[in-house]
């Protein structure tokens, strides 16, 4: 079972966002970085599938800055076998990212490509389906269950409270929803082993994205809070205000 997992280095989800001096990015002063949480679930699932199959390998791929080597090494420490780093210091839109990923994995042999459903910075949920389009592969996004049997993936995803169970011919691109796998913490042995695992680096394939991010701003501040007494009368006045003042009931 040969699996490629696409990951992204993102700012920690606990970050308090401030807008940068260019007005089109966030201020990165003092922020912590993590592997995007859904990408980490994809890495974990790939390792589990390889181990269940008893053969194969897991290759993690990222398009991102030189510093993203740290996130690749973390994935290697979790148990991935090798890493591919397409380097760029620029923010790429989803289309440009998908094409850079395609260029980075072209010529490699794989049965399955896993991505997180979305990176927690851009929140587009687009790179997985766009990569599938570029590679002309079948795609199922937002997968919370996955097993592999006889060259097919059996996947589950939830829509409107129902679970759809789909059978997918491999190779395919699947994107991870929460519930797919609980990422492990790399142990010391894994961290030591990761230092010796292969990590190939090349400049990311260029290309402009047809969507331009012109500016970034903080959302408008919310108004002052009205305090409601925790009594039956308080509840009644709350409901009246929600209906008459806010018109949401």
């Amino acid at each position: 079972m040969k699996i490629i997992v696409c990951i992204k280095r993102v700012v920690d989800t606990e970050t308090r966002v401030k807008i940068g001096a260019d007005g089109a990015s966030i201020d990165l002063g003092g922020v912590q970085y993590i592997t995007a949480p859904y990408d980490e679930m994809a890495v974990e699932k790939a390792i589990q599938l390889r181990d269940e199959a008893g053969e194969g390998n897991v290759t993690v791929v990222t398009v991102g800055p030189a510093a993203a080597t740290k996130e690749l090494r973390t994935a290697l420490a979790m148990g991935a076998d090798e890493a591919v780093h397409a380097t760029t210091e620029n923010r790429l839109g989803p289309q440009a990212t998908a094409l850079a990923l395609k260029a980075a994995i072209d010529g490699r042999d794989y049965d399955l490509i896993l991505c997180g459903k979305q990176a927690t910075d851009e929140d587009d949920a687009a790179v997985g389906p766009m990569l599938a389009a570029a590679l002309e592969l079948p795609c199922v996004a937002f997968v919370h269950g996955l097993t592999v049997e006889g060259g097919k993936a059996i996947v589950e995803r939830e829509i409107d409270g129902e679970t759809e169970i789909l059978e997918v011919d491999l190779p395919a691109v699947l994107t991870a929803q929460k519930g797919l796998a609980e990422p492990r913490y790399p142990g010391l042995k894994g961290i030591m082993a990761a230092k010796k695992k292969p990590l190939a680096t090349a400049e990311a394939a260029g290309g402009d994205d047809p969507t331009v991010l012109e500016s970034l701003a903080l959302p408008p501040a919310r108004g002052a809070m009205v305090t409601i007494e925790p009594t039956a009368d308080g509840m009644r006045s709350l409901l009246e205000s929600l209906r008459n003042d806010k018109k949401v009931l």
Partner: peptide, 19 residues
Amino acid sequence: GKELGAYVAGRLGWSLMSD
């Protein structure tokens, strides 16, 4: 909608504005 929009934008090389 998110999956379909991204996939078809990728196929057509169109701009995607998601969510």
